[in-house]
Design a protein around this nucleic acid. Structure first.
Lengths: 337, 337
DNA sequence: ATGAAAGCGCTAACAT
DNA sequence: ATGTTAGCGCTTTCAT
């Protein structure tokens, strides 16, 4: 099968050390010997066994990547980015996605630990219930960086868009259009990210002198289906909202579907703002106003941090927030009357 | 750091062999001993070192996955599916995406070989120029399965939607609407998949008695940008087409953009059919008629094949074609006059 | 029921 | 400039 350094050594009638010296292009080896060995290695189709190398070196040349299924599509480009960037740094990427089951996240992390990955980038659900597991892994020496999300109290570097601004900018814009009955389809507030979003929403309303009723923050799942159901429920209210801020574009798509199904016009009857600015946002039946995150910069920053951690650098265990931007499109209009 | 079987052996004052017997739940060990060891292992936070295990066993418990960047988004769900399915079979997934550079594909494959993956699922560009590399890898013993694409002459199992039907169904439908000036924005025909598509297109036209001019098959890149440019060029023709079949939805989106930019209406001035039926197709400004592939079934089939190959089974080296379906939406209308 | 020893392929410290 | 040797952590065969 695959040839080994030992095979080459035998074929060249030298020791394995000499073979290594040739392969690693050292200079304490006679040029002719080197050449002869290199030629032999090529002929014998030698490919270093990274498994053995990892064992010897004590750490694999892989970094792990853990992505939650509900965001897989959103961050597909991040996956590619991570894969390619870490490859430049000499690492392969071990990908895991959880299937959403409670301890699936734990199993994936244990796998990564077992595989002795050098480090890992994780894109968890904002309201993951597995914070202790992450912390445990980090404490046991795994280099961890959280991207596109942030987890309260987790003592590792985290890189994320500014979630306070997500709702603050959205709400401000809707207020400037004259809306007062705005509902925010929210991330649960039992996690930092959820609280940041809620705070941005509340602050904007309060600054405008609009009282924030609990009914204006409706916790919602992170899917089209959840958005659909949420709007359907909202339309039952005696005073249905005139504007919606959806926690994510996919939720906004669900809202759109439900609105159309109910015979409502967007933006005439309902203004709508999403979040994350999916690529087709401007080609939708009603082009969707959304918050654009610097997704690439987030990924890049996270990877940079990870790579320098791998290099042994001490990194600030803080949360890096990158600016977001409101992209105005046709899904919002001035409030009527 | 991480504890080893040896650490446990010492702590329990037994041999490593006995520790292994406990960990693997063998029965030639005294129950109390087993229990004691297991307790110790848990306390010491033992996690088997998969790197070492792989070296001993001669093969890693990973399967590779190689995805071309231009299809990363389309097949993001497939990535998740692969990751989760192979995990159930006891394997981790080593993800690589090429950065499109010519020998990037080769490097990724070499990495996979070096990592001694048990096998790999690849989603290549239809017109990849690296067929020999794939073949070489397969010949050197790597279990390979191609998914969502098929490569001419590559002697490994391949699983893909029926690409002949993609264009055949599309063209038939447009013909039934009365269109005769149809342009197919084509995959290059220097690959099997490209030829299948072209054949489906030609057959449909010929069956309808419409002559197929070379001008009706326009080779096109696989991106929005390529679609935009292609339509812009087509609009210069003295007899611009009344209907377009795009090789992929992303190309169709580009066509849409260009059409709108030129002040054309879809479907009044131009009928449009995409391919792959992206999730938002029905929420677009003009809901897009498209061909739906059984993406999940393709992935599942590919994985099943790979897993049974890993188990040592001999698999037919054929191309498995799964049925596709035309999803009619508002982007097509009867030809005028 | 338990242990000793060798080996997977590579690397690095230590000779010569 | 080249070789010897030991070891990474696990598994497995062969004792006892």
């Amino acid at each position: 099968m695959a040839s080994t350094v030992y095979d080459i050594a035998r074929a060249a009638s030298v020791s394995t050390t000499t073979v290594l010296r040739a392969l690693w292009d050292k200079d304490d080896i006679k040029p002719e010997t080197k050449e002869r060995i290199l030629k032999l290695a090529a002929e014998m189709n030698y490919r270093p066994n990274l498994v053995a190398r990892s064992l010897t070196l004590g750490s694999s040349h892989f970094v792990g990547m853990l992505v939650t299924p509900s965001v897989t599509t959103t961050y597909a480009s991040s996956i590619g980015l991570v894969v390619r960037t870490v490859r430049k740094a000499g690492y392969g990427t071990l990908c895991y996605t959880t299937d959403g089951r409670p301890d699936s996240e734990r199993m994936c992390l244990e796998q990564l630990a077992s595989a002795r990955v050098a480090g890992a980038i994780v894109i968890p659900e904002a309201d993951t219930k597995n914070v202790p597991i992450y912390q445990e892994m980090a404490d046991s020496g795994m280099k961890l960086v959280v991207a596109h999300s942030c987890i309260d109290g987790l003592n590792v570097p985290q890189v994320v868009g500014d979630n306070y601004q997500v709702t603050y900018l959205s709400a401000r814009y809707l207020l400037s259009l004259g809306h007062t009955n705005i509902v925010y389809l929210a991330i649960p507030q039992d996690c930092l990210l959820g609280r940041e979003r809620a705070r941005g929403f509340r602050d904007a309303l309060q600054e405008a002198g609009i009282p924030v009723s609990p009914a204006s923050i409706v916790t919602c799942g992170n899917s089209e289906e959840a958005g659909r159901k949420a709007l359907t429920a909202l339309l039952q209210r005696k005073k249905a909202p005139t504007a919606i801020i959806a926690r994510h574009d996919s939720v906004a798509l669900g809202v759109m579907r439900a609105a159309f199904a109910a015979g409502l016009s967007i933006p005439d009857d309902l203004s709508l703002i999403g979040n994350s600015d999916i690529p087709v946002a401007d080609l939708l039946r009603v082009p969707l106003t959304s918050i654009r995150h610097p997704a690439e910069e987030v990924a890049r920053t996270a990877i940079t941090k990870l790579v320098s951690m791998l290099g042994g650098a001490k990194i600030e265990l803080d949360i890096t927030k990158l600016g977001v931007e409101l992209i105005k499109r046709a899904s919002c209009a001035p409030a009527k009357e």
